[in-house]
Design a protein around this nucleic acid. Structure first.
Length: 277
DNA sequence: CAGATAACCTGCGTGC
DNA sequence: TGCACGCAGGTTATCT
């Protein structure tokens, strides 16, 4: 479900709600797929204080004062919510609630993930850079390394569809299926074009709109398509600003031509056949 | 090695 | 109402 803007919005909200709080107790339900139980998990987090929360690509990194870091990825269906004991009495549901932290302010931080594609790990902070999940990630879209020249270099000689290149986390970290379509619409490039054949000025537009679209989405606290909710239970507002995603058959906002939906790299990809070359 | 495909899970909306 | 089917915002293992 979440791409970079949703995870960044989550980070900012958790920073306000749980940063500085101390973990009183923790419990584990069924773990995310392919994950072994973390040894001595309860004992390792009990009494520890949440020092800060970082984001890398679509990963959330919760720093504890013990020197450990909790690394979370929401996969397709995960959420990390702060439930207030006084106002939200919903019980821990081991079917989809995988981890719960009871905090020292009467609230509970819950990692919930029905499809269990997400991950939740705990590693000493100094080992973060060696984590397999984080190791091969490309530059953050807002970093200076991610620019037109860099993207052109990565696209060179590549035969993959430009949309797949944009969603490749080794190329740039954080772009997923919704925003890839939105970025390419604004850059006026068809998702199916071979990356190596996309012209330099088009590549430059893609790099620029990658930053613009993700930034605007963070501004709107992410996209609510279906039933995504942020950690305070509110929907994001960027869904109102989607130009093509989910709009198959509806008129392009720019030229009124019906938006098309084609499968690229086994993912739905929306584009305007007239505006995007 | 680049690229394509299958697989990992569960829930929800749709149409009969 | 029930059921089969298709689809879902991600990543990774395994083929060609």
């Amino acid at each position: 479900m979440p791409e970079l803007p949703e995870v960044e919005s989550l980070r900012r909200m958790l920073l306000r709600s749980v940063a500085g709080r101390t973990i009183v107790a923790a419990r584990i339900g069924r773990l995310p797929l392919r994950r072994r139980a973390i040894p001595n998990f309860g004992a390792r987090v009990r009494g520890k204080t949440i020092e800060g929360i970082d984001r890398r690509a679509k990963y959330l990194i919760i720093r504890l004062d013990s020197g450990d870091a909790l690394v979370a990825h929401l996969g397709m269906s995960g959420s990390l919510t702060c439930r207030d004991v006084d106002f939200d009495s919903s019980e821990f549901d081991p079917k989809h609630d995988h981890i719960e932290f009871q905090l020292d302010n009467q609230s509970r931080l819950v990692f919930n993930d029905p499809r269990r594609f997400g991950i939740f790990r705990m590693v000493p902070r100094r080992e973060l850079d060696d984590l397999r999940e984080l190791k091969g990630l490309g530059p953050e879209p807002f970093s200076p390394e991610f620019n037109a020249e860099y993207l052109a270099g990565q696209a060179r000689e590549r035969r993959v569809a430009i949309k797949n290149l944009l969603m490749d986390q080794k190329i740039v970290a954080g772009v997923g299926n919704i925003y890839a379509s939105e970025i390419l619409f604004r850059a006026r490039v068809r998702p199916t074009r071979r990356a190596g054949r996309v012209k330099p000025d088009e590549i430059a537009r893609i790099a620029r709109f990658t930053r613009i679209v993700l930034h605007d989405a963070i501004d709107g606290r992410g996209t609510t398509f279906r039933n995504y909710r942020d950690s305070e239970g509110r929907p994001g507002t960027f869904a109102d600003r989607l130009q093509v995603y989910g709009r198959e058959g509806e008129p392009c906002y720019r030229c009124r031509t019906p938006i098309r939906n084609v499968v690229v790299g086994q993912r739905a990809s929306f584009f305007c056949p007239r505006c995007q070359k």
